[in-house]
């Protein structure tokens, strides 16, 4: 079986967000782009599964919807260890368009296990994986914190409100993964970086999917007023303030 990991290209998590002068978009100048943190963990887990299950997994591929500027991020995924990469040549307008383009890709190039990060750290939609599974008619499991192959089935742990569940499903499936799926993201080795230059990166034309939403104005959170400091020798004063000023205790 083959595993596809869907990737998103996001600003590094230390980025301070600035807006364009008319607030119509985020000012992308000077931003360092990285693989979305959850997607990076998903890729790490996919590679671990491939390496520990003998010949069971044929290949681990990565896919992204984006224009040429996302290719360095795809090359990084190849350097980390993915076997090949797909880029759908479209600057997507929303999550549905991403999901529909990925569905088109998967219908033409079937995969048994598809991994998506639970959200992207830019638009925080948590939508692509779920939408993709519906468009493909595949089983989806969300909030997945562990995944392994067992006796021809896929064994997963998912988080639910106030607990967790152990689940068994048959492929094909879309697993939407969160923290815990892998301990630490893998870092490319020098050999991996060299190898990534010659690994296949296929560029596919968009299948012309529609978007359902559009982004209007952006705004930034209102800065807070100054912090009120209380002396460490006078802890009861803090409690008094919380009780009678903030009225929260």
């Amino acid at each position: 079986m083959n595993i596809l990991v869907c990737l998103s290209n996001v600003p590094d998590t230390t980025t301070r967000i600035k807006l364009a002068a008319d607030n119509s978009k985020v000012d992308l100048s000077g931003i360092q782009w990285v693989i979305n943190p959850w997607d990076e963990l998903a890729l790490t887990r996919a590679l671990e599964i491939k390496e520990t299950t003998g010949t069971l997994v044929g290949k681990v591929s990565v896919a992204m919807v984006g224009k040429t500027e996302v290719e360095p991020t795809l090359r990084k995924a190849l350097a980390i260890g993915a076997d090949d990469a797909f880029r759908v040549d479209l600057d997507p307008a929303d999550a549905f368009q991403v999901a529909a383009e990925l569905a088109g890709l998967i219908k033409a190039n079937p995969y048994e296990i598809i991994l998506c990060g639970i959200e992207s750290s830019d638009y925080n939609g948590s939508m692509v994986g779920g939408m993709l599974s519906e468009l493909l008619g595949y089983t989806s499991i969300s909030s997945v914190s562990s995944l392994s192959l067992q006796d021809g089935k896929v064994a997963l742990t998912r988080e639910i409100d106030g607990g967790k569940e152990t689940i068994s499903v048959s492929a094909p499936l879309v697993a939407i993964v969160q923290k815990g799926i892998a301990i630490d993201p893998r870092i490319p080795s020098m050999r991996g970086i060299m190898a990534s230059r010659t690994k296949p990166l296929s560029v596919l034309a968009s299948c012309g999917s529609p978007s359902l939403t559009s982004f209007g104005n952006f705004s930034l959170p209102v800065p807070k007023s100054a912090c009120r400091m209380v002396d460490a020798e006078n802890v009861p004063e803090l409690v008094r303030l919380l009780h009678s000023e903030a009225k929260v205790i």
């Binding site: 929303d94 999550a95 549905f96 999901a99 639970i118 959200e119 925080n124 939609g125 948590s126 939508m127 692509v128 994986g129 779920g130 939408m131 993709l132 599974s133 519906e134 468009l135 989806s140 499991i141 969300s142 909030s143 939407i176 359902l212 939403t213």
Partner: peptide, 17 residues
């Protein structure tokens, strides 16, 4: 997170999370 995006794709209903 598990259901709303599936419903969105099924109904072609735009979604805000």
């Amino acid at each position: 997170k598990a259901i709303a995006p599936r419903l969105s794709a099924r109904l072609r209903a735009g979604m805000v999370a």
